[in-house]
């Protein structure tokens, strides 16, 4: 899955963004299939906005986001749904779990969305064990701490097929040890699928062997 940005510019931020230089905004950028991309951005420069544009849930921009050569708006709702089930996965900064479901159900929701389960239950249990969340799997989403939710959201993003994983500050509420574990799991899963990712964060880090660095 290849994503191309063609002079992408968020309408609400354009005055502010024109006054500073950026590797992403208002440029021609191509994210190649399978590459690990890190986008470093200070607060307020449109990090989350960019992820939302790439995932096509916000549309207030000028320019173009093209996926596999076609701009997002040219895909039908059912096409977009199919791509979100098969080609692109996401970890939102605000996590977006269902509070009425348990942690396990939140994970399974994506595991079975495209039809038959992508991973067997043992694999999910294994992932939960690696991120130290096995004990909270049966708790409802409402009662989890933010760090626990973040790890559930990470596992949820990994139990579906994808070629590109979008991550918006995925480790913001994790301690160093859990961050390492999560990063290792993500890298492993990406390698297994031959997939790449685009990760946005505030600072520099060594969690992954990044192929490309951008400054937003």
């Amino acid at each position: 899955m290849q994503i191309q940005l063609n002079h992408l510019m968020p309408i609400p931020l354009q005055d502010k963004l024109r006054q500073r230089s950026s590797d992403i905004w208002n440029r021609e950028v191509t994210f190649q299939q399978g590459s690990f991309v890190k986008i470093k951005a200070p607060s307020g420069t449109g990090k989350t906005t960019l992820i939302h544009y790439l995932y096509h849930i916000r549309y207030d921009y000028t320019g173009q986001v093209a996926v596999n050569g076609q701009p997002w708006p040219s895909y039908s709702k059912n096409d977009i749904a199919r791509m979100r089930q098969q080609e692109v996965s996401v970890i939102f900064q605000d996590l977006r779990l269902f509070e009425q479901l348990t942690a396990r159900e939140n994970i399974i929701l994506k595991n079975v969305m495209q039809g038959k389960p992508y991973y067997p239950p043992e694999k999910i249990a294994d992932m939960a064990a690696r991120l130290n969340v096995s004990h909270i799997l049966e708790q409802s989403g409402k009662t989890l701490s933010y760090g626990e939710r973040q790890r559930i959201a990470i596992i949820r993003a990994l139990v579906q097929p994808f070629q590109c994983l979008l991550m918006d500050e995925p480790f913001s509420h994790l301690d160093e040890e859990n961050t390492q574990r999560a990063a290792a799991l993500i890298a492993e899963e990406c390698k297994a699928r031959n997939a790449g990712f685009i990760l946005t964060d505030l600072d520099n880090d060594q969690h992954f062997a990044y192929d490309v660095h951008y400054h937003l």
């Binding site: 995932y55 709702k77 059912n78 749904a81 977006r96 994506k110 969305m113």
Partner: peptide, 15 residues
């Protein structure tokens, strides 16, 4: 809200 989130996560309108 729930349906919106389902769609964001990739649930097809047909589903």
């Amino acid at each position: 809200r729930e349906i919106q989130l389902l769609v964001i996560l990739g649930t097809a309108p047909q589903q």
